[in-house]
């Protein structure tokens, strides 16, 4: 059993999630936005893991495995879109991807 109180781990997860959120809100480069989303997914996984360790259940670790799969699928599609965006629009500016609007 871990000796770390759940509150500390959840606080760390909250700080990391907030940092990732700032990155998503502030950066305009699509690569940085994807990296910030990875940070937020990781923070969510840390919260699951802390709760799972607190109650001594394996469910938290199972959820982290699922988050891992979601992150892998998300990043592969996101990077493919980034390559496509660069090839067609010549920029990585996430504000330039607004063709769906027209």
């Amino acid at each position: 059993m871990s000796a770390i109180p759940m509150g500390y781990a959840l606080g760390l997860a909250a700080i990391l999630f907030a940092l990732g959120l700032v990155g998503v809100l502030v950066r305009r480069n699509i690569i940085f936005v994807l990296a910030s989303i990875e940070v937020m997914l990781n923070a969510a996984g840390l919260a699951f893991l802390a709760a799972g360790a607190r109650w001594g259940r394996a469910d938290g670790q199972v959820m982290f495995v699922f988050i891992l799969a979601v992150a892998a699928a998300e990043v592969s599609v996101g990077l493919a879109i980034a390559l496509k965006c660069r090839r067609h629009l010549g920029t990585l500016d996430i504000d330039a991807i607004s063709k769906l609007k027209d």
Binding site: M1, A9, A53, L68
Partner: peptide, 27 residues
Amino acid sequence: VVFYVLGAPLIAALEVIIYAGAIMVLF
């Protein structure tokens, strides 16, 4: 390291192999 300290060595290994390894190499 945080995951390992929290008592989840399997998740710590997966974090290193898949996140720091595979996903970052993809990036």
